[in-house]
Design a protein around this nucleic acid. Structure first.
Lengths: 206, 206
DNA sequence: CATCGAATTGAACTAAATTCAGGTCAGGAA
DNA sequence: TTCCTGACCTGAATTTAGTTCAATTCGATG
């Protein structure tokens, strides 16, 4: 669900609705291609009302990205927390990565397509805050994958090599899927899970 | 070099200069962040003159992407043509992928960051032509990698599995590097070549 | 009831890409 | 040489979308 962020929202807040509409449009039609005013229409408010919730269209995009990163990170931690064997944890993390709702698929797509936005500072205050937040999540996710690989090396499950580099490669494999995956396409999410899990085990294993 | 495209260019054409300036700015500062007029300044012409060479800023971007895809494809074919063993061809293709000039690094970055542009049709004529061109190159590159993997399976060098899926994974690994690689960063291009070549051999091998 | 802040609005503003309506310039034909 | 043509270029005007502004409505709370 999109709700339950830290900040308490008033009962007649349209924030969640805006995010949902934005995710659908940004994900389906692309960020630059969607007119900000169209989101307002879909939610049933005037364009100006959007600025009560987000400082800008870009701020909304960054929020969507940050939310999805936070969710992914949390999910990773949940499913790997109580799995001591690194190879099992690796498979669990990958399974979790593809255990997503249709809307989360769109969010991952948006995330992949606009990751470059996180590289350069934003002029406006709240955008920059959200960007930093997102960057932090990215770093934490990379750290989690690295720690997982290191754990496997320490336990002897994986041969000793550059853990961070390997983690980067594995993570890239996992997320690159969202660039081409389409529901109803040649491969199902289950197919993808199997494909990537096997590949990851091979990359990191003996 | 950026020149030697099919179309003969007049001697005082600034097209190559525009492309070079655009690659630098789009690659360094990002496409949306660079002002089209700034490119004109850098080349030493008025903003309107840009439209003599490109129908739009997006058309220029699509041209850059298409050019880089064409170059990559050609290079792949060159280095794998006379290598019969699939595993050697795989390593050659990966080596070639990272044997690039600084400007080509930027072009690959631009390509990765805007691949999603190829998914949806363009309203304007020449943009759409360039998009189709780029999509064709993408398809051909995917076909080349797939054929390479299939060749390996047929020869027994790689175990039989879903060749297209595996090729997609390998190609994704190869190109995902451009999202994070920076000259002077933790890993050199030689490091990257080794890292990805090893990973690819593991993914596709026994 | 009074009030406060969240939520909303129409009208005006702005930045940047693009179009328009015409110039200039170099090189080949007459 | 002069003329002509098409490549190349320009300043001014237009367009489009995102954004700001000043002012208003609504609902809960004291």
């Amino acid at each position: 669900m999109v709700q339950d962020v830290m900040e308490r929202e008033g009962p007649r807040s349209k924030r969640a609705g805006i995010l949902a509409a934005a995710i659908d449009s940004f994900g389906q039609d692309g960020y630059e291609h969607t007119k900000w005013a169209k989101i307002a229409d879909e939610v049933g408010i005037g364009q100006t009302a959007l600025y009560h919730y987000f400082e800008s269209k870009a701020h909304c995009l960054l929020t969507i990205m940050s939310l999805e990163l936070a969710r992914s990170l949390q999910r990773f931690r949940e499913v790997t927390a109580d799995v001591p064997q690194a190879d099992a944890a690796l498979r669990a993390a990958i399974a979790a990565a593809y255990d997503v709702s249709p809307r989360e698929v769109l969010q991952m797509r948006i995330l992949q397509n606009h990751m470059d936005l996180l590289a350069t500072p934003r002029a406006s205050e709240r955008e920059e805050v959200e960007r930093q937040q997102a960057r932090k999540h990215v770093r934490e996710i990379e750290d989690e994958w690295t720690a997982l690989v290191e754990r496997g090396m320490a336990s002897g499950a994986f041969p000793e090599r550059d853990a961070r580099a390997l983690a980067t490669v594995v993570l890239a494999m996992v997320v690159s899927v969202w660039r081409w995956y389409r529901p109803g396409g040649r491969l199902s999410l289950d197919d993808v899970r199997e494909l990537i899990a096997d590949a990851a085990v091979r990359v990191v294993g003996p």
